[in-house]
Simulated scan of single mutants.
Amino acid sequence: MRFDLSPLTSKEVILASASPRRTELLKQAGIEHVIMPSECEEIIKSNIPQDVVQELAGQKAWEVYQRYLREHRTEDFLVIGADTVVALDGKILGKPKDETDAFGMLSLLQGREHQVYTGVSLIRYEDGAVLRKSFYECSNVQVYPVSEKEIYEYIASGEPLDKAGAYGIQGRFAVHIRGIEGDYNNIVGLPIARIYHEIKVW
Score class of each variant (00 low, 15 high):
residue 100 T to M: 12
residue 98 D to Y: 06
residue 35 I to T: 08
residue 89 D to N: 10
residue 155 I to W: 05
residue 194 R to C: 04
residue 194 R to K: 13
residue 56 L to E: 04
residue 138 C to M: 15
residue 67 R to M: 15
residue 110 Q to E: 14
residue 76 D to V: 06
residue 91 K to W: 04
residue 73 R to P: 05
residue 177 I to N: 08
residue 194 R to N: 09
residue 130 V to C: 03
residue 21 R to Y: 11
residue 113 E to L: 02
residue 188 V to G: 02
residue 113 E to P: 06
residue 155 I to Y: 08
residue 148 E to H: 14
residue 143 V to A: 06
residue 99 E to L: 03
residue 27 K to Q: 08
residue 200 K to E: 11
residue 118 T to V: 06
residue 176 H to W: 15
residue 68 Y to I: 06
residue 67 R to L: 15
residue 86 V to G: 13
residue 102 A to Y: 12
residue 113 E to Q: 11
residue 49 P to W: 03
residue 196 Y to D: 12
residue 24 E to F: 09
residue 114 H to I: 08
residue 85 V to R: 05
residue 138 C to H: 09
residue 152 Y to V: 09
residue 99 E to W: 00
residue 31 I to Q: 05
residue 141 V to F: 06
residue 97 K to H: 05
residue 161 L to T: 00
residue 82 A to W: 14
residue 131 L to T: 11
residue 29 A to G: 06
residue 9 T to I: 07
residue 55 E to V: 00
residue 89 D to A: 10
residue 37 P to M: 02
residue 43 I to V: 09
residue 133 K to D: 15
residue 58 G to S: 05
residue 110 Q to C: 08
residue 52 V to R: 00
residue 10 S to W: 11
residue 72 H to A: 07
residue 181 E to Y: 08
residue 189 G to C: 02
residue 145 P to K: 02
residue 65 Y to T: 03
residue 201 V to L: 15
residue 192 I to L: 07
residue 31 I to C: 08
residue 149 K to T: 12
residue 51 D to Q: 15
residue 26 L to Q: 04
residue 160 P to G: 07
residue 33 H to Q: 10
residue 119 G to V: 08
residue 128 G to W: 01
residue 104 G to R: 06
residue 65 Y to G: 03
residue 6 S to F: 11
residue 110 Q to L: 09
residue 136 Y to W: 08
residue 112 R to E: 14
residue 57 A to C: 02
residue 7 P to V: 13
residue 16 A to E: 12
residue 152 Y to W: 10
residue 136 Y to C: 12
residue 193 A to K: 11
residue 28 Q to G: 13
residue 161 L to Q: 00
